[in-house]
Amino acid sequence: MSVPSREEMYRALEERHGADLQKKLDSASVAICGLGGLGSNIAISLARAGVGHLHIIDFDRVDISNLNRQQYFPEQLGQLKSVALKDTLERIAPYCHIKADNIKLSEDNIPDLLSDADIIVEAFDKADQKAMLVNCVLESMPDKFLVSGSGMAGIAPSNMITTNKITKRFYLCGDGVSDVEDGMGLVSSRVLICAGHQAHAVIRIIAGEFDI
């Protein structure tokens, strides 16, 4: 079957989300920093919801160790994550404007690279990189909304994972304690719960619903 037209896909989303929300989602611009277990799942949720502009950023390639939780396929092993995920997102949401960058984010390039986004999603895996991005955005881009994830390793209960609002524009999802460095691996279901919290925080911000 051929791909539906832009109008057909938009109307189907409008029927589910309502015209007001869909208009907001369609004009929203979200940057996703890191395309691992969190970022690849967040990007797919937002693309399916009809977010109009996604900027996906990672410097890594798809590895066999990623396949337990990240949204890549075995035939994509070795590909750049930014390229592989863009291919998948284009199949899911062919009319979404997707910008894919293969680059390592740092304090030097973050303000410039992320300037177009309304909402920035932190989806890195290393704790010091998470802190670097969060500090950089809060210090140098105070008008942006920021949604970060910390603490989702292992098989501890789902209900430990929550969304917290730290400041007016900074949301933090996760259980805050389950560290991958403590020897617990990352399990798809629990990483997806945290990714779901982050994606849903983004959608609520777009909707103008700022409470948690």
């Binding site: 989806a123 890195f124 895996d125 704790a127 802190a131 910390s150 603490g151 390793a153 304690v177 560290d179």
Partner: peptide, 10 residues
């Protein structure tokens, strides 16, 4: 004061 501690995994 809010001290946000980041842990690894993603």
């Amino acid at each position: 004061v809010e001290v946000v501690r980041f842990v690894g995994g993603g």
